[in-house]
Amino acid sequence: MYISLVVPCFNEENNIEPFYNAVEGVFGKNFDNTELIFINDGSHDNTMQELKKIYNKNKNNVKIINFSRNFGKEAALLAGLKKSTGEYVSIIDADLQQDPKYLIQMIKFLDNNPQYDAVAAYQQIRKEDKMLTFFKNIFYNLINRISEVEFVKSASDFRTLRRSVVDAIIQLPEKCRFSKGIFSWVGFDTYYMEYQVQSRNSGESKWNFMKLFKYAINGIISFSNIPLITSSIMGILFCLLSFLYMIFVIIKTIMFGEPVAGFPTIVCILLFISGLQLLFIGILGQYIAKTFTETKNRPVYIIKEYLE
């Protein structure tokens, strides 16, 4: 059985060779039936040079996609999936936080359970800052309430897919991609397998709070129209309240005569409503920006060099 490994790489020069050796050791005799598809996502270090070293050592098992610049992990995943040829396709990071030994467990599970189409790994206990975990929990609770598809908490991109799942994913033409949502949207039966995250072999995580925040916003905008609906409902509600308050002021002025009083109240109401308007304009702007990106029809990525 032929197996493809999709490995996004961004500034991973010290991890390439250890990762390759780890995969070779895990698969053993079956390594000849494995292809490693490395995607160099515009790295600024010597990642490409390290990739070429292992390519020259084993051209039969290694493919390299070299982007013209950094297009992001979502683009790298799509490029790797499109170039994959295996009956099973696994997505795994190059930093060895995701131990390649779990790939064998995923593949064996799919072999023994034909009713499942994919295996996704998740962390029961996350090894990260508690504040970051808190915000991630808020994100998953929120998006599962407003989205039509289910997002499994703590599920990662570390997963193994049957060819049918891969073919479905690469058919989606969208430019603003959010893989966690796409994996759920295409359907198919997925088994969630617990795993333990290892320490990085070298380097630091490329994800900080702001990048994760933008990623979360992208996910919400991509898989839910609820923010737009909420904006419309709030707009109608405040119009109704404003109309009722206007009637109240008119009647009160006619009956009791109070033309000047209430100035602080009016100022507070104006500031509050103006803030809401700016918030809703910002939400609308996010959707317009996504639409603008899609209509430009630019490619998700550009390949500078492809070695196979």
Rank of each mutant, 00 (worst) to 15 (best):
I104W: 01
D167L: 04
L142W: 07
E35G: 01
I288E: 14
N113K: 03
I92P: 09
I254C: 14
Y192E: 09
M210L: 12
F151G: 11
P18I: 00
G285L: 05
I104D: 04
K252G: 09
G72A: 15
Q277S: 10
P100C: 01
G181L: 10
Y191W: 02
D93T: 05
V197D: 10
I247T: 13
S147K: 05
L51W: 01
N141F: 07
I251W: 04
D117F: 01
G275T: 09
F31Q: 02
F158P: 13
Y306L: 05
F10Q: 14
A155H: 04
E50Q: 14
S90Y: 00
S274E: 02
E194S: 12
R200P: 15
R298V: 13
F209Q: 12
L284V: 04
L237W: 08
V6T: 07
W207S: 14
S231F: 00
K153N: 12
S224G: 07
M246K: 09
A75P: 14
R200S: 15
L81D: 08
K127H: 14
I303N: 05
L244Y: 10
S156M: 07
L276G: 14
G187P: 08
E87I: 03
Y195C: 10
L161Q: 07
F134Y: 13
M246W: 08
G86F: 02
K252S: 13
I302V: 15
F27V: 01
R126L: 11
D117L: 02
V62C: 00
L51I: 03
F27N: 01
K57I: 00
L5R: 02
A261P: 00
D117W: 01
I281W: 11
I169D: 08
